[in-house]
Amino acid sequence: MVTLGFGAAVAIAPGIPGQQLPTPPTEHELLETIESLRPELEEARRLAEAATARRRTERLAELAARPERPSEWVQAGPIWIVTPPGTAELAAEVFADVWREDFAALTGSPALDNAVFAFQWAWARPDPLVVDPASAAGRPIHRVELTRFWVGSRDGLRERVREAVWSTLKGDIAEGSPLARWLGASRYPSGERIARHVALSAAVPSRACLSGVLTGCEAILGLRGEAEYARLATARPPDAPAQLLLQALRLGGEGAWARLLAMQHASPLEALVWAAAVDTDILMASWRSELVDHRPTADAGLATTAGTTLLWALALALFALRSTRWRIA
């Protein structure tokens, strides 16, 4: 009875004259609340990363204490890879593909020349590969250790390797330099994702860029000063800076990476133009044509889908023709 009475009171409460509903927070207040939580979030993230790193170090120490497991060294371009026996050929093939298709213009990277990639691709989660310190000679080890369950295809492998090589390359750029700040946490760019982001952006410079106004492209890429960089943060696809940088290096060819590093303390646009050895307009036009070329299409994969469906329908039809309820005997 008491519960019913309380329920009824709660139900009619909003209708009591004079009772004030709490005022909903304004957008500004909400943003302030979210911002006030950021330090706690950052601290939690830092602690989680530290714990993961500690666990990995402990595990590596534990593995290092065991009798050494054999490993093989292979090279693809300037990249050195250490891998368990049996996967050396695959590692060389995958890294060589990635190097040839995506990074061949990037010769002379100190970070890449100095790095060692520990590569594994196993059915079960692999233990971290123990690299003999004498062989590694103090070089930093970048791990590409994957399970077939999550990364099931060679395309998936190439994607992960590409990402690992890209993040190693970024190690050449001095932390805190304008170029590093501009690149931010850019991952290896996906042309299609960037094209979709720009096409659906609610920012005027995005429309301008798509219509061929190159200053619009410069604006969304954050190359027109700090204020524009911050103002158009949501219009900028997260990996677009990386896409422009790689485009500049392709245009610049041999020595472009070294030129870029030499200018990394200048503004990002100056550094990119210097590395590409072309005018700003040519660089921007080249990036824009990359953007347009990667425009996603709705019919991607439709032919495969149609083929697969027809095959399944045929198989099911065969079952239907064979199966019967006509068992009158």
Binding site: A298, D299, L302, T305, A306, T309, L310, W312, A313, L316, A317, F319, A320, L321, S323, T324, R325, R327
Partner: peptide, 25 residues
């Protein structure tokens, strides 16, 4: 047209599966 084609293929898939089930015992 792409949407219509997808629609037809999806119809065909569902139809084939349940047709095969219906045909059997």
């Amino acid at each position: 047209s792409h949407l219509a084609l997808r629609f037809f293929l999806a119809t065909l898939m569902a139809y084939s599966f349940f047709f095969a089930l219906g045909a059997g015992t």
